[in-house]
């Protein structure tokens, strides 16, 4: 992911031929995760004032599903790393194969989230139930929107990789799409323990 170009000159990366879009996506990502950081801060401040409620609500969440989702995003992230590596080598078939693997594994996150949300809603737990679940639905919901966008990006990259040289101009898009997908993983790495694991179980 490091064919980064700043001030017009390649500063990292062996080829420096494609990837001028990477600093742009990194700027977007750091701004996006900073906004999430503010949400994390708001959650923790609210938790301080309603400790018992937040801890009891947190203990109602399914840690196993959360763990599984973490493993899914990490595995999908690994496949994206391998897709970027293959694209850098100009291997179209391998690039598409890893992008598809990343998409298929990543879809598991969506299925798990659907199961988790429907379970909560079936038990009458909505974002109006209490402040913890308001944060739960907002944080995981906004993260889910990012996840869906990432899945669309993976699908588009897979489609384009079948029609264009993967180590040509498309490489910058593959690299940027990969960085975006890792952001989805990175955010979940914080959201999962903060929502599911902080309180006594």
């Amino acid at each position: 992911m490091t064919e980064l170009v700043l001030k017009g000159a390649p500063v990292a990366g062996a080829s420096g031929k494609a990837g001028a879009s990477a600093p742009g996506i990194l700027t977007f990502i750091i701004a996006d995760v900073a906004v999430f950081g503010v949400l994390f801060l708001a959650f923790m401040l609210e938790r301080s004032g309603q400790l018992a409620l937040f801890d009891s609500s947190s203990s109602a969440l399914d840690v196993q599903l959360g763990l599984l989702n973490t493993l899914i995003l990490m595995t999908s992230g690994l496949f994206v790393v391998l897709a970027v590596h293959a694209a850098r080598q100009g291997q179209s078939v391998a690039t598409r194969r890893w992008l598809l693997a990343s998409f298929v594994v990543g879809a598991g996150f969506g299925i798990n989230k659907a199961i988790e949300y429907s379970d909560k809603l079936t038990h009458g737990i909505t974002m109006l139930s209490n402040d913890f679940f308001m944060f739960y639905y907002v944080l995981t919901g906004v993260h889910f929107v990012h996840f869906v966008a990432g899945m669309i990006v993976l699908a588009v990259l897979w489609f384009r990789a079948g029609r264009e040289e993967v180590n040509g101009p498309l490489f910058g898009w593959i690299e940027s799409g990969g960085l975006y997908w890792h952001m989805v993983d990175l955010l979940w790495i914080v959201i999962f323990p903060m929502l599911y694991l902080l309180g006594p179980r």
């Binding site: 992911m1 490091t2 980064l4 700043l6 500063v11 990292a12 990366g13 990194l26 990490m74 992230g77 690994l78 994206v80 790393v81 960085l179 890792h182 993983d185 990175l186 790495i189 914080v190």
Partner: peptide, 17 residues
Amino acid sequence: LKGRAVILYFMELKVAP
């Protein structure tokens, strides 16, 4: 630590500016 690993190795920022 996990986030740092993703940042440095999956996002490859260890070789970025």
